[in-house]
């Protein structure tokens, strides 16, 4: 995901889909297309008790991006500074090679424009020091945006502190 990561805290996610809607509203995504997608498993009954879980799937902004390699007109570019992969709309010829090449078919088809479109992690917002629209809209902080190292530090700190609180030193 370039230099960034979006982490889903399934305990906090209530599958409200604000992330998807905010993404669509911000990026003018046409009906049927979804740039960032919240994937929800459940609710389903396990031993009589309902359970559910969820994971947000935006574009992964791969290091060696299949979509970029497949684009015949070099409309897909990668930013040097942070590795975000994006489509230059004016160059896209609508061949859909990127959609087919991506192992998860993450680039979307904009039928109105006759062009492909994809999640650029709201790089305009990132450049303004803000989180992507999906993360900013999440009403429960179930989505967290950051750099992998930073998220890892935070998660480990939280885990460690919870252990320490449970077993304080004498």
């Amino acid at each position: 995901m370039g230099d960034y990561l979006i982490y889903t805290d399934a305990a906090k996610c209530i599958a409200c889909h604000s992330c998807e809607v905010a993404c669509k509203a911000k990026n003018n995504v046409p009906e049927g297309a979804t740039l960032g997608k919240i994937v929800v498993l459940g609710p389903r009954l396990i031993n009589g008790q309902p359970r559910m879980s969820s994971l947000f799937v935006p574009c992964f902004h791969c290091e060696d991006a299949w979509c970029m390699n497949a684009c015949p007109v070099d409309a897909i570019r990668k930013r040097n500074e942070d590795g975000l992969v994006y489509i230059l709309q004016e160059l896209c010829v609508g061949c859909k090679a990127c959609i087919l090449a991506c192992p998860w078919h993450i680039p979307q088809w904009d039928a109105d424009a006759g062009k492909a479109m994809k999640c650029d992690l709201c790089m305009d917002r990132i450049d303004e020091g803000q989180e992507p629209a999906c993360v900013a809209a999440c009403p429960t902080n179930a989505l967290q945006f950051g750099e992998p190292a930073q998220l890892s530090h935070k998660a480990r700190e939280e885990y460690g502190l919870s252990l320490l609180k449970r077993n304080p030193a004498k």
Partner: peptide, 19 residues
């Protein structure tokens, strides 16, 4: 954009209707 009012701590974001 439409986001939660940051002066209200529990307003971490908006629901899909707000979005």
């Amino acid at each position: 954009s439409i986001e939660g009012n940051p002066h209200v701590p529990a307003m971490k974001g908006v629901c899909p209707k707000g979005a």
